[in-house]
Computed example of a mutant assay.
Amino acid sequence: MSVYAADKLIAQARLLAAEYRRTMGKPLPGISSEIAEHDAVKLLRLEPRPEGASGYDAVDPARDGLRIQIKSRTIFDESKSGQRVGQLKMEQAWDAVVLVLMDEEYEPYEIYEAQRSDIEAFINSSSSSRAKRGAMSVARFKIIARLVWTREDGLEPEVWDNQA
């Protein structure tokens, strides 16, 4: 499948997911993670994980094949607190996590990156059983992580030097 075909399919998936939520009153299961994975690979200039690899979703060729787990959260109402990041696979081999935040139209507006060591430090210092399982809020993730991409500015050059 060509890159154009994938981009076109993702655009259609965005429309379908947004319309499904408006019509049914609930999100279409699983779609946000597929869209986020596509967006992170494209916007951060990553490569999809090699065939047969597990525990991560992409690699960054500009950073010696850094293994990246991709998470997503679609924010439908920013006034609501308590948004959660999907459980991190702490038992798997990965180096960093990116969190793609999307709006109600399933369009990305911010991407954050956290290093494994920073996440492990939080988990080890937390008394929360949720944290011990690799679960955390979007707000906590944003505190631990660095903003690496925004809809307005694109890649943040001082954080994400992927120009090589």
Rank of each mutant, 00 (worst) to 15 (best):
L16G: 09
E34R: 15
M24Q: 15
K142A: 04
A93P: 04
M24E: 15
P50R: 12
P27I: 03
G134W: 15
L99T: 03
S126L: 08
A139W: 10
A96H: 08
R21A: 12
T74G: 05
A13S: 12
T150D: 09
R133K: 14
S129T: 02
R84I: 01
A17I: 00
L99A: 08
V85C: 07
M136T: 01
A13T: 03
E158N: 14
S81T: 06
E158A: 14
M102E: 09
M90D: 09
E107F: 08
A114N: 12
A6N: 08
R116W: 10
L44Q: 08
W149Y: 13
A93D: 14
R146P: 00
G154D: 02
N124R: 15
A145L: 05
V148T: 00
M1C: 06
S117H: 10
E105K: 13
R14I: 02
I70C: 00
H38S: 05
I119V: 02
I75C: 05
L147C: 01
A18N: 09
V59F: 09
A53I: 00
W94S: 08
Y4H: 07
A18V: 01
I70M: 01
A62S: 11
M136R: 05
W149R: 00
F76A: 06
R45N: 13
R63Q: 10
K8L: 03
R22Y: 12
E37A: 04
L44V: 00
R14F: 06
S81I: 02
F122N: 09
M102W: 09
S2T: 05
L99E: 11
Q115W: 07
G55W: 09
E34M: 14
D7F: 05
V148Q: 13
K80W: 08
G30L: 04
E156T: 03
I143F: 10
A96I: 02
T23R: 15
P48Q: 07
M136V: 01
S54V: 05
K26E: 15
P157G: 08
